[in-house]
Amino acid sequence: MGTRKHWWMAMALGAAVLAAGACSRGAKSRKLEIVLVTKALDSEFWQRIKSGAEEAARADPGVSLAVLAPAQEINIDQQVSILEDQILKRVSALAVSPAGVAEIVPVLDKARAAGIPVVIVDTDVRWPYQTSFVGIDNRLGGRIAGEYILKAIGGKGKVAVIRGVLGVATQEDRLTGFREAIANSPGVELVAVQPANSERALGMQVMENMLTSHPDVKAVFGTNDQMALGAKEALEAHHLTGKIVLVGFDATREALRAIQAGAMNAVMAQYPERIGKRAIEEAIKAARGLPVEKRIDIGTALVTKDNVSQFLK
């Protein structure tokens, strides 16, 4: 019957293609191939990481750089496939910002087995073999934000957090740092920790709900700028701008302008270009067999109305 023929043809095809493949392993180019795989490329943060990385690659004529990412941060398996394909090409070095910190580990093992150095970017993983980690100390950032809020509300009152997707390490770390900062102030009560998936619209919705359930909340910490800006919209709609302390994280241009205008109080600044640049520099070093630093903290800074003009340049 015809269907059986179908199978035979499929098998014949498979065999032919494999045979062809076996005889044609390609030769490598002489340039160093460095590949940066981010979680996504759909926000200002990742685009700035990308431009920093490209700056580093331009500085070295012996390097070619590709920046790849799954379509969305949630497509973890797509990111794994991209990495597998790059490992197969035996690229010189990888820089990876993992979309899933546990899910990524098996493919990192494959990179190691193939002898490819891996620099972890922005989001740390529990994997002892990483060549280097380039990012910020999110926990410290969270703690600084917490301390700022503590001072701004005079050490007592209700506070709330709008956080990103559960299970993402950077988000967890910022929250942990924040909790540490307020732990020793009995006057401060953390009344709500609500997820808003790092989205602006959800951030606004969550803020509105909080204003209903906790009308006496004094300060809100959004663990990224998108959610904080959503909360800003909600406060504006309720004419509460400036009456509730609002702190974000990332220092996007929009958030900085909001601080300048007095619609937000502070953000924790990251330097994404520096992160991207440094990650690629370390990856190049590793590819050339030069020594690298195990852990590179790019650092964060608290931005308030006082110093915002520096960051807005």
Binding site: I74, N75, I76, D77, G100, V105, P106, G167
Partner: peptide, 16 residues
Amino acid sequence: VLAGRMNSGFPLAGMG
């Protein structure tokens, strides 16, 4: 297959 491949059971598996 996916859990084995990723060495984890993750709730976002198979999105889309």
